[in-house]
Design a protein around this nucleic acid. Structure first.
Lengths: 249, 249
DNA sequence: TAGATTGTTAATCGATTAACAATC
DNA sequence: TAGATTGTTAATCGATTAACAATC
């Protein structure tokens, strides 16, 4: 079994894609897939799928393929999303509320144990049963909750202070939604969620499509609904829909 | 001037990081930076910063560095976020409302022209002055707005239908917040925003830190607040804070 | 057995890093 | 001029892809 520390980050990131597809397939009652199938469903090539899994062990049966339920379970284990895990949210604003309302948490066994804010008007209330505490009580409150992952969902100018507090309270992994680069000690892992950055990338791509000329006409040529599997358009490749299994009700 | 179609996607993505830093620096009244400075501020190495810019032209003065305001402006041009651009949001739920409330749109010159939903109770109302229209009126409404970027902020089971409608209405770039792989024609660009995937990556990393043994002790050794510039911890590298310019008030 | 499909090794590709000549 | 810093070329590194032996 390979050392998990030499797993390329891109491979690790793709595990989330796979688990999402597998959940969908499981939901649809499919119980076996080949790496070829996964290529169609996930948009990641069959070779890469197998290679990615190989960093973690063996998951399939030669000549047969992969058991959907089993593979989903084992990837969940790898990601440590197979058992309940408390996380803490800081910021009870619009974004915070939207995050709490997000229905996907429980299928990854994440549980928002509490929200922290500094607005006195919000403290003591609850948002969808998640209690709002004062940010000053973070360290103390987390002694019970034992969350290690903190979500920063406050305005940019408060984000560094919040990050500092989370670090001081012993959190060692942060997700940052604020549009600012946070500075944290080396041992703390941060991942940024920057949707405005995604918009900016799109903005560039649509205005520079099909070469320097950038003409709309050049793009229109390729129209029609013929979908090409694995064709790159600056984003992740998408599968053809020959299988129709995924996507849409 | 190089052909912009051979710009590596990672380089393009980093432009957003740079512009963010430059905005911050501009806000602080800094008017000149070197690539070394940018390494500290952005966490991207000086060599990579210069290399990334080189795909687009020349931006600095040898021996001097870069003019902050000028560089910010030119990168904004490259990303086409230098002039107003309508975008359309589909989904007037919690997430949609949070997106509308997000304060960062205008600094990138994005404007949410309208929200579309299918809930009759929401149609005709406004969310922070953004009108909510019925999804059936999408094509017609967009004739005036001329948005090319659509934001999918609906539940997973509605997302593919929404994507299909956006494509039919002529949108050629989508941001997808729904936890499902969307299938669209080749010429349409999609980018996924999957924060639960980010959580899952963190979940793996914190539980597998410092090798197979995975012991907490191994990590504690590296404690203290000594921050190492450019050290990778599975996320983007972070700068030391010798300059204190960025991050936190 | 023959056909299918995995897990893995080798070959290719592309991105990052280092080094340096150009030049302010 | 001397020192600094860019833009770019060359070297390194790492990830992806292709090919295939193992095996169900």
């Amino acid at each position: 079994m390979p050392n998990e520390n030499q797993v390329p980050l891109p491979a690790l990131e793709r595990l989330s894609t796979y688990i999402r597809c597998l959940m969908q397939l499981e939901h649809e009652g499919v119980d076996s897939v080949s790496s070829q199938d996964m290529e169609r469903f996930s948009g990641v090539s069959a070779a890469q799928f197998r290679k990615d899994l190989s960093y973690f062990g063996e998951f399939g049966k030669r000549g047969i393929g992969y058991n959907v339920r089993d593979l989903r379970g084992r990837i969940a284990q790898l990601l440590h999303v197979d058992q309940n895990q408390n996380v803490v949210l800081v910021g009870a604003g619009n974004l915070g509320a939207a995050l709490i309302a997000y229905p996907g948490w429980h299928s990854y066994h994440f549980r928002i144990a509490a929200v922290f804010d500094r607005d006195p008007a919000k403290i003591g209330k609850s948002i969808r049963r998640v209690p709002v505490h004062h940010i000053d009580t973070l360290t103390e409150a987390n002694r019970e909750m034992n969350a290690r992952i903190g979500i920063v969902a406050v305005p940019a100018w408060e984000a560094q202070d919040v990050a500092d507090r989370l670090v001081a309270a012993g959190f060692n992994a942060l997700i940052n939604f604020a549009p600012i680069k946070l500075t944290v000690p080396r041992q703390v892992i941060i991942r940024e969620v920057c949707f405005i950055c995604e918009l900016a990338v799109l903005s560039h791509l649509i205005h520079n499509a099909s070469g320097q000329d950038g003409s709309r006409e050049a793009r229109e040529e390729l129209d029609g609904t013929g979908e090409a599997p694995g064709s790159s358009n600056g984003s992740t490749p998408r599968p053809s829909r020959t299988t129709a299994a995924l996507g849409g009700e």
